[in-house]
Amino acid sequence: MTGGTLAIRARGLSKVHGEGQARTRAVDEVDLDVPAGQTLAVTGPSGCGKSTLLHLLGGLERVSAGELWLAGRRIDRLGERALARLRRRAIGFVFQDFHLMEELSAVQNVELPALLAGRTPRTARRRALDLLDRVGLADRAQRLPAQLSGGQRQRVAIARALSNAPLAVLADEPTGNLDTAATNDVLRLFDSLRSTGQTLVIVTHDERVAATADRVVSMRDGRFVDDVHLPAASTGGLGDLLGLGG
């Protein structure tokens, strides 16, 4: 494989929980290459290890065994401080329940990662306002999370994830708490991120999210059991979805 660089590369990636009889392999020797700019969906039943995999990729949990690279840099052996720094600067996280700071306004939530990464308040604010504009919430910048709908809160969380122009955005069930209209908003936003070349890894139960990704891997018992690349464009007419005949 040549061509684009790999945003994420994993070899024999494993995570073991517990010891002795209770020892389980949540992630079991997974190999994964995610080219830069790809939208990858990871699906599978509860407990299959998909969230743990996402945590490993983003440095939220330590790897038990295996090797992991982010944009060509080996990260599985980083110390805690270096890993924390990497998480803050190079990864954007999106969670099912948004994880916004309730006492901060939308724009303050979005600028927080930039401030933590050492940007000036001015630069951080300007970028945060740009990002809120990009997710269609420029007019909600001063609202508190409690004053926003679920879909709006998730879009704020996505803007926050983009704060430091991350190498990859990792999303864990990003539409899990959203209704259809808000889910569609988030999917449209993911599409626009993809068009800018943003790498996205999305763990999801939601078939709609999986179906609009570039690639879908299915996990069972910590391993990949299927890996499908979906065609970029529609391959059939919409008519066969309806079956309205004469």
């Binding site: 569609n184 709609r208 999986a210 179906a211 609009t212 065609p231 529609s234 059939g236 919409l238």
Partner: peptide, 20 residues
């Protein structure tokens, strides 16, 4: 499953192109 995913992709893409 692959065939249904393909159809779902077409339907979901068409849904995303529609206004709420």
């Amino acid at each position: 499953r692959r065939e249904l995913m393909r159809r779902l992709r077409d339907a979901q893409r068409a849904a995303l192109a529609e206004a709420d």
